[in-house]
Design a protein around this nucleic acid. Structure first.
Length: 458
RNA sequence: GGCGAGUUGGCGGAGUGGUUACGCAGCGGAUUGCAAAUCCGUGUACACGAGUUCGAUUCUCGUACUCGCCUCCA
C-alpha cells in the first residue's frame, strides 16, 4: 500500500499518515459561508482537498473514505445581505449553495460524502455547549455563552501561540461580558429580526466556531483523521474548534492531522474588491477560462505555498492541457496511475512534482499512463473536456477552406510562393490553423475563427 | 506590538549536505521554398553576512526584503 505522508500543522512536521481505521478514513474541511459567489481564492482549498480525497480513495478504496465539508448558513454577513435585499435568508443560502455546486463542479471537484448545513445541526451545537457549560469550560454572561480559554491548558497549541503572547498584542478586543479578552462566543442572543433558535440560554444563534465541532462529531465521531482548511482559519477558528471539542470530549483527541493551504494572490497583489482584482470562479468561466485550467493552475504550486493567480499562468496551463488532451484523445487510460505521479501526491500532496511527472509521461508518449495519472488529479476527464474542441464547421465553410488549401498547393507546385504565402496568411488571419504534415495539410478552426475573412482570398 | 511563513536560473516552480527537477520563454539544429506545427539538443540558479562541515543552495545564527495571522475573511 502506498505510504502517504502529510504535513501536520499540529506537530509542524511531515508525518506518515496512518488512518484510525483503514476502512473508514475520515476528513473534515471547512466550507464556505454561503452569502456570495465563491472567488478563485475560495476554490483553492476545494481543489486541494478534492485532490487529497481522490488520493485517499485511490489508496484506501473508493468507499473507505468519508469526506465532510460544511456550509455555514447562519452568519452575520448572510443576515446583512438579507436585510439589504429584503430576501428571506433561506432563499439566499439555497441559491448560494447552488452556485457553489455549479462552480466547484466546473473545477472538477467531486462532491464530498456529506455537506451538512449549520442550521440543520443547531440541536447538536446546543448539546455540545451544554456539555461545555456543565464541565466548567463555558459560562453564561449577559445572554451570551462564552468559552473560557483559561479552562483549557492547551489553548494556542495548534497555532503555536500562548495566551500571554496574544494578550500582549494591542488589537485584542475587550468586551465587558468576557472574563478574558480571548474568550470566544459559543452562543449569542438574537433579536426578533435575526435568525434564532430557542435554547437553555434564551432565543439566540450559535457563534461561528461551534458548528464545525458539532457537525464533525455527529458525522465523523469524536476523533477522525484529517481536518483541513485555509491557513487563515488556523487561528482563531481551528484553535477554538480544538478547544471546544477536546474539552467536551477530553479523551477523543479530535482531528489527528491538521492541514492548511496557503493563500492566493492575484497578479502579485492581495485580491480585494477595491483593487478591482477580485474574481469569482463564475467571472473567470465567463471570461472563457475553463474550470480545468483553473484547477491546473491551482495545483501547479504546492498547497502550503502561497500562489499567485496570473493570466500568464492560465495561458500556460491552457496550452499544456490542450497538448495533453490532444495526446490522450480517444486513448483508453492504463489500469493504474503512474507510480511517479502517485508517489509525488503521496508525499504531502506534491502536486507540482506530480505535474512534472506527467510532463515526463507526455514526453515519452505514454498517453495511457498520462490519462490514468491525470484522473487521479481530476484532470483530462471527459466531464471537464469540451472547451478544447475545435469549432464546429458546416460544409460550406469546410469546402471553402479545402478550396483555398488546394489553391495553395497549386501555387506551391508552380513555385508561386507569394501566392501560397498570401493564402496561408489569409487563412491564419481568419482563424484557421493549418498544419503541414508529410501526409498533406491538416486544418482546424481556432477560437477566433471568422468566416467573413475567408471571402476574397481566392 | 505579538506570532508565523517565505526569498531558487528570463518567468513559473520542485528538490537535495557532494550528482539532471520539470514547464514556459530563449538559443542552436533537423524539417520547410520560407514559415507554422513537430522532433532533437541546449540552461550550473539557489537574497545577503557569518558559522558548522572535507564539502552548503540544502543545517545553525544574524541582516534585508516580501507575505500571512492576531478583527469578518479561504
Amino acid at each position: 500500500m502506498t505510504e502517504i505522508k502529510l504535513y501536520n500543522t499540529k506537530t509542524r512536521a511531515k508525518e506518515v499518515f496512518t488512518p484510525i481505521d483503514d476502512a473508514n478514513v475520515r476528513m473534515y474541511v471547512c466550507g464556505p459561508t454561503v452569502y456570495d459567489r465563491a472567488h478563485i481564492g475560495n476554490a483553492r482549498p476545494v481543489v486541494v482537498f478534492d485532490t487529497l480525497f481522490r488520493l485517499l480513495r485511490h489508496v484506501y478504496g473508493h468507499y473507505a473514505v468519508k469526506y465532510v465539508r460544511n456550509f455555514t448558513d447562519v452568519d452575520d454577513k448572510i443576515n446583512a445581505k438579507a436585510a439589504a435585499t429584503g430576501r428571506p435568508i433561506r432563499d439566499i443560502t439555497d441559491e448560494t449553495i447552488e452556485w457553489y455546486h455549479d462552480d466547484m463542479d466546473a473545477l472538477g471537484a467531486l462532491r464530498p460524502t456529506h455537506e451538512p448545513r449549520a442550521t440543520e445541526y443547531i440541536a447538536q451545537m446546543i448539546a455540545m455547549i451544554e456539555v461545555l457549560v456543565e464541565k466548567g469550560n463555558a459560562y453564561v454572561s449577559e445572554g451570551h455563552v462564552l468559552f473560557d480559554v483559561n479552562s483549557y491548558d492547551a489553548y494556542g497549541a495548534l497555532s503555536g501561540r500562548s495566551l500571554e503572547d496574544m494578550r500582549a498584542g494591542e488589537r485584542v478586543e475587550i468586551a465587558d461580558y468576557k472574563r478574558d479578552p480571548m474568550d470566544f462566543v459559543l452562543w449569542k442572543p438574537s433579536t426578533d429580526d435575526l435568525p434564532g433558535w430557542d435554547s437553555p440560554w434564551g432565543y439566540g444563534r450559535p457563534g461561528w466556531h461551534i458548528e464545525c465541532s458539532a457537525m464533525s462529531l455527529d458525522l465523523l465521531g469524536d476523533t477522525f483523521d484529517i481536518h483541513g482548511g485555509g491557513i487563515d482559519l488556523q487561528f482563531p477558528h481551528h484553535e477554538n474548534e480544538v478547544a471546544q471539542s477536546c474539552c467536551a470530549y477530553p479523551d477523543s483527541g479530535f482531528a489527528k492531522v491538521w492541514m492548511h493551504n496557503g493563500f492566493l494572490q492575484v497578479e502579485g497583489e492581495k485580491m480585494s474588491k477595491s483593487l478591482g482584482n477580485f474574481f469569482t470562479v463564475k467571472d473567470l468561466l465567463e471570461q472563457g477560462i475553463p474550470g480545468e485550467v483553473m484547477r491546473f493552475v491551482l495545483l501547479s504550486a504546492h498547497y502550503r505555498q502561497p500562489i499567485d493567480w496570473t493570466a500568464k499562468k492560465a495561458a500556460e496551463a491552457e496550452a499544456t492541457l490542450r497538448k495533453w488532451r490532444a495526446l490522450t484523445d480517444g486513448i483508453e487510460p492504463s489500469a493504474n496511475a503512474a507510480s511517479t505521479v502517485v508517489e509525488a501526491l503521496a508525499d504531502d500532496l506534491n502536486t507540482p512534482k506530480a505535474i512534472a511527472a506527467m510532463h515526463e509521461l507526455a514526453g515519452k508518449g505514454d498517453a495511457a499512463g498520462l490519462k490514468a495519472s491525470a484522473a487521479l488529479m481530476g484532470l483530462l476527464s471527459d466531464e471537464l473536456g469540451g472547451w478544447n474542441d475545435a469549432v464546429a464547421v458546416d460544409d460550406k465553410v469546410s469546402g471553402m477552406i479545402e478550396t483555398l488549401l488546394d489553391a495553395r498547393i497549386s501555387a506551391r507546385q508552380n513555385k508561386d510562393f507569394a501566392r501560397s504565402d498570401a493564402l496561408r496568411d489569409g487563412l491564419a488571419a481568419a482563424g484557421v490553423v493549418v498544419k503541414d504534415t508529410p501526409k498533406g495539410a491538416e486544418w482546424e478552426l481556432g477560437a477566433d475563427f471568422d468566416a467573413a475573412k475567408l471571402e476574397g482570398l481566392l
